[in-house]
Amino acid sequence: MSIAVELEGVTCAFSTKGGGAYTAVKDVSLAVAEGEFVSVVGPTGCGKSTLLNVVAGLLKPTEGRVRVLGDVLSGVNARAGYMFQSEALMPWRSALDNVVAGLDFRGEDRASSYPKAEAWLERVGLAGFGNRYPHQLSGGMRKRVSLAQMLILDPQILLMDEPFSALDVQTRVLMENELLELWSANRKSVIFITHDLEEAISLSDRVVVLSAGPASRPIGEYLIDLPRPRDVSEIRLTPRFIALHDKIWHAMKDEVLKGYAQTRNRVSA
């Protein structure tokens, strides 16, 4: 299998208000194969999103580089689709117009792009909701629109930044299953950021654990050898899942505590 995304010694530092520098991630090397689903987990504030922005090309790393399908990335990563944690839909566009946006940017005319967008809305279970505006949709529906908006462009790499963290537990499980179904139909490389270990294990082929910030780096990689197709709510009850969860959680726990202590110090300082 060939490599889809490869991070080589990526370091990201930001200058702070006080004139100092904050290193979010330090010397991260990571490779994602084509068609592989990789989750990155870590304690809050460990620079998971920073890493994803680097792969997306929205953020230039201070050191190191990113290779996408062999080519060194410069500028925005045109082969990647990005699903954001917070609301990213254009509120002045209806659901259908939001889905069609990427094709608009490509200059495709509406006669051919609208039918595609309608088909995608149907695939994410929103047939008949095309003329609703984002505020008229529930949180889960808005995530479906975002998913369709991203997938209509058929990107080779999917970058997902805690996309379902704002949803309630039931909706979340539904969305995770739907994501797996859409993904397995046409396997893309996925980098999925989450702080939820259960979500990470149930979705992925591989889980990467990041250390607490600042200067976080991967401290462990775990192959998830659970069979596919999976049902995310059922698979969580299998012994293999529990064993994996136990193993990864033990490795993570120290980092979570470290991250928690740092946040607390920062607040009290």
């Binding site: 997306a56 929205l58 925005v76 990563n77 045109a78 990647a80 689709g81 990005y82 954001f84 917070s86 609301e87 990213a88 839909l89 254009m90 509120p91 946006a101 990427g102 608009d104 940017f105 490509r106 908006q149 991203m150 462009l153």
Partner: peptide
């Protein structure tokens, strides 16, 4: 919203298109 801007950028909008569509 910077997220809406980033999203449009990732969907392939050029600077000109960002001006017109966002």
């Amino acid at each position: 919203s910077p997220v809406v801007l980033n999203n449009a950028t990732m969907l392939g909008a050029t600077r000109r298109q960002l001006l017109r569509y966002v």
